[in-house]
Computed example of a mutant assay.
Amino acid sequence: MPGKIIPIALALSAATIGATLWLSRPAPEPQAQAKPISSLPGDARSQQASATNQRLSEAAPSALPDPGPLPPSLQGASHGVSLRMAADGSLLLQEDLLHLFDFYLAGLGEEELDKVLSRIHRDLAAQLREPALAQARDLLRRYVDYRIALQQLPEADNLDAAALRQRLDALNAMRREYFSAAEYTAFFARDNAEDEYMVQRLTLVGQSGLSPAQQQQALAELELQLPEEVRAARTESARHGELYAATQELQKQGASAEEIRQLREQTLGAEAATALAELDRQQAAWKQRLADYASERDRLRAAGLSDPDLQAAIAELQTSRFDELERLRVQALDAEL
């Protein structure tokens, strides 16, 4: 999720944001006003984003421009978010609502902002009617402004508890500026709990004067402060991590596929073990296809072709062996093959 600040979650990515609740009350509390993008001096891109989003927010659903097919990296994928409205027609914020925004925003590297925002507004208009549509559009406007403002946050060493504390405080202040109290709780409560845990954990680990036993006790008490669903997710993640390490060790020892399947079944159950075995098969097939491609590509490179002819031959090779999405992966990996 954009705004993550700590190890494992330190990078500002557009990947995941959760939420659930609000806007169904007869007299909702005032929404937080978006910080004007023009207040970010010299940032023409920020001003463009704000102006484009405002223009699309004011357009009738039927007047929204058709941006055409999804960019290559998103073709064949779906955000899978079904938006909901309350009985009075107001917007209900479920946990995955902002994932819809992030899904389309992930295409910014491949197409212009106006196309990305048009896709989001068209999706909102297809799923919602007023007043929920206006509320969702306003949320999108503030979310985009928030995402842009995140770029202004100070960098922090991911192992420096004091710097991370400063960054987390600044991040939370920014969230409260762009979102109402109800939205803040809905969107960021879980992330903030995890961030707080990691900052406090780093602080404890760095404290002198605690014996190993005292430190372990303090860490155990700190973990109990996490929400139940977060602790369950951490436990599940640790279980998968241990299974992965054990599987890697078995493979190094030359274990058979059946022995690995039995280990996975004991840990995760028969259904998960079968799914992982199929994933192994797919990964092995993909690696073999890459190896075959690399061999043929190297043969072309050794054939003494001119550079234009070589590039054309490699492009034809890629087209003959991979579909469009696969070619993007191959082109990204090609320098490392």
Rank of each mutant, 00 (worst) to 15 (best):
Q251F: 09
R261L: 04
A245I: 07
A273P: 08
A238E: 14
G254I: 02
A245F: 01
R239N: 02
S237L: 09
T267D: 02
E259P: 10
L268N: 08
E271T: 13
E265M: 07
A275D: 02
A270D: 10
A277G: 10
D280R: 07
L263K: 02
E258K: 12
H240L: 14
A272Y: 01
E271M: 12
A272F: 03
A273R: 01
A275V: 11
Q266I: 08
A257T: 13
Y244I: 13
R261Q: 12
T247C: 06
L279N: 04
Q262R: 09
A255F: 00
Q251H: 05
E278V: 13
Y244G: 12
T267F: 00
L268W: 02
A277K: 00
A275M: 08
A277S: 07
L250W: 06
G254N: 06
I260M: 13
R261Y: 09
G254P: 00
Q253S: 14
G254M: 02
A272M: 04
T235A: 15
L276I: 05
A272L: 05
Q253P: 12
G254L: 00
I260N: 07
L268Y: 06
E242V: 14
S256H: 06
E258C: 07
A273M: 08
S256T: 15
A245T: 10
A255E: 04
